[in-house]
């Protein structure tokens, strides 16, 4: 059996007095799509951000593709280039065009030349369905389009893992589908994905596993079918009853 691509072992994290992660352990296999759900403040975003080192853990280990993220000697930039992340607030660079947003890190980190990085950028914009927006500025796009640019920007680095931190939570309802479609396409291609989201439609369609977190711990880790039909824990049932309507 091949080694999991993400291994998280007994991770603890405090923010001041807030105990965000209380000994979380989980592993993700190559090509797996993991959806993380849970009430706000349950630590799901923090867990996601520990995977690419945006948050430093207090204790415990995070190993991504056999690289120990949590070891101080690790070149975190090298890990991050392999792990794409898409944020709730898109975080596109407003002073750059859409295409420049996608080519910047390719040129600086991947050392690709202008022509190659632009070709890759245009290909990816086609893939996420907005090939005509290459020369627009982010502020000229709708939220859904911005988020798809953010996905293209992350994919341009050829990551082995994609993290999604509530990618549709800041979107108007009619724009959620276009972003989820891009994510579904990615899942079908076999990308390893960790998705913090309450989009149950996406979870049903794409997830191999769903993890329910509450108060900094993993309460339940199971398949979508089991979670939706017969969750084991009371807390999971309570939470699902609140978000499924």
């Amino acid at each position: 059996m091949p080694k999991p691509i993400i291994q998280i072992e007994d991770v603890h994290k405090h923010f001041g007095k807030v105990y965000a992660l209380r000994g979380v352990s989980i592993s993700v296999d190559r090509g797996e799509v993991l959806v993380v759900i849970g009430p706000s403040g349950s630590g799901k975003s923090t867990l996601l951000r520990c995977i690419n080192g945006l948050e430093h853990v207090d204790s415990g280990n995070v190993v991504v593709d056999e690289i120990p993220v949590t070891r101080s000697t690790t070149n975190i930039n090298a890990v991050r280039a392999e792990v794409g992340i898409v944020f709730q607030q898109f975080n596109l660079f407003p002073h750059l065009t859409v295409l420049q947003n996608i080519t910047l890190a390719q040129r600086i980190v991947r050392k690709r030349n202008q022509a190659e990085s632009e070709r890759i950028g245009r290909d990816l914009l086609g893939k996420v369905g907005i090939p005509d927006k290459a020369n627009s500025f982010p502020t000229q796009l709708s939220g859904g389009q911005q988020q798809r640019v953010a996905i293209a920007r992350a994919l341009a680095m050829n990551p082995r893992i994609m993290l999604f931190d509530e990618p549709t939570s800041a979107l108007d309802p009619e724009m959620i589908k276009e972003v989820l479609d891009a994510m579904l396409l990615l899942a079908k291609e076999g990308m390893t994905m960790v998705v913090v989201s309450h989009e149950m439609g996406f979870a049903r369609a794409a997830a191999n596993r769903i993890v329910f977190m509450d108060e900094g711990t993993i309460i339940e880790d199971t398949s979508p079918e089991v979670l939706f039909t017969n969750p084991r824990e009371e807390r999971t049932k309570l939470f699902l009853s609140k978000i499924l309507h």
Binding site: L54, N91, F93, H95, A105
Partner: peptide
């Protein structure tokens, strides 16, 4: 400049200095 800008740049594998130079300072 919002923290998300630095985080997005760092997440793409850029160093602190590169993120400052190409993303934060121009804004």
């Amino acid at each position: 400049i919002s923290r998300g800008q630095m985080e997005a740049a760092r997440s793409l594998g850029m160093s602190y200095g590169q993120s400052l130079r190409y993303v934060v300072l121009p804004q």
